[in-house]
């Protein structure tokens, strides 16, 4: 069988991420259910949800404009674009020089920006509330992300994702250096904030006092809602891939052979399962924070990132 080229691998890895994302979220939900002594829906429930939503009719508010109808596509496109840039299976791929970690962060901000605008479009109070809170959390997590990128780039000498992965693989001792561990902690908190997981936001609730992300997308239905939900799940998978492949990169294919790619797939699945279990346990243990306690949590992640950089300076 001929060896796959870089472009085919890139497209394949994006398709893989799209296919796995609903399953990952289904796994997290199932684990949480089991931990809470419930049976829970089967792991493949999100796939069934997507199929249902794509077949349903869309109801659009009479106050909404073209932006409401365009936003799901923009959000989905930007998240899929990020999927092309994140090292899910192999490095370095041809798209590595197109975008680095900063591009990834700001592309995700592009999606959040349009989603927040779409929350304000129908003129409902829920949407406004969700938009306001979502932009607050996004703005406050920016410094942490920037500093975490700084810490990783300090070690690797570049902000390009392929470089960071390659550097950690070349120097395994760096992976347990306190700088990396602290940066991991900071990025884990940011993952919770950016994806709307507990303790920042509860993805399972629809009470106005407790929702952020769900409040913004309350007006959406049918295929629009399917696109938005799918991109939110894809975002979870991409953040997990970043956490896994930047900090524990072994298994990521450096040569494009079928054997290496198969091994990369296996290790990716293993890392996703481990992170899913960790997230499920964590979410079951903590309660949701009041909105005005969330900045304190983000301040903690900021301090972790500051420590990560200071320690990285030390160990250089």
């Amino acid at each position: 069988m001929p060896l796959p080229t870089g472009y085919t691998v890139a497209i394949a890895q994006t398709a893989l991420a799209l296919l796995l994302a609903p399953g990952l979220v289904g796994l997290i939900r199932w684990l949480k259910a089991r931990l809470q002594n419930r049976r829970g829906a089967p792991v493949w429930q999100p796939y069934l949800e997507l199929r249902k939503l794509f077949a349903k009719e869309v109801v659009v508010s009479s106050n909404a404009s073209w932006l409401f109808r365009a936003a799901p596509f923009v959000v989905f496109a930007s998240t899929v674009a990020v999927a092309f840039l994140v090292p899910v299976l192999a490095v370095p791929l041809p798209f590595d020089s197109v975008g680095d970690l900063l591009v990834v962060v700001y592309l995700l901000l592009l999606g959040t920006f349009f989603l927040a605008l779409a929350g304000l479009d129908p003129g409902s109070a829920f949407g406004g509330m969700g938009s306001s809170r979502e932009m607050t959390v996004a703005a406050l997590s920016e410094p942490t992300v920037a500093l975490a990128i700084f810490a990783l780039a300090l070690g690797a000498g570049s902000t390009n994702l392929g470089q960071i992965v390659a550097r950690t693989m070349a120097d395994p001792a760096a992976a347990v250096s306190p700088g990396y561990l602290l940066a991991f902690g900071a990025l884990f908190v940011v993952t919770l904030a950016e994806n709307g997981r507990l303790p920042v936001d509860n993805p399972a609730t629809h009470l106005e006092l407790t929702m952020i992300h769900e409040a913004m997308i309350l007006e959406y239905s049918g295929r629009y809602l399917a696109l938005i939900e799918w991109s939110a799940w894809l975002k979870v998978l991409l953040f997990f891939s970043l956490l896994g492949n930047l900090f524990v990169p072994w298994g990521v294919a450096t040569v494009l052979t079928w054997a290496a790619l198969g091994w990369a797939l296996a290790t990716l699945l293993a890392k996703l399962v481990v992170l899913a279990v960790a997230l499920a346990v964590f979410e079951t243990r903590v309660a949701k924070l009041r909105l005005f306690r969330v900045p304190e949590l983000l301040a903690v992640s900021f301090v972790l990132a500051v420590l990560a950089i200071t320690v990285s300076f030390l160990v250089r």
Binding site: A299, V303, V306
Partner: peptide, 17 residues
């Protein structure tokens, strides 16, 4: 307040460095 204390704590660590 808590968030400000944490930020000041981070800056104190930088100062210590």
């Amino acid at each position: 307040n808590t968030a400000t204390s944490l930020v000041i704590g981070g800056l104190l660590v930088v100062l210590a460095y």
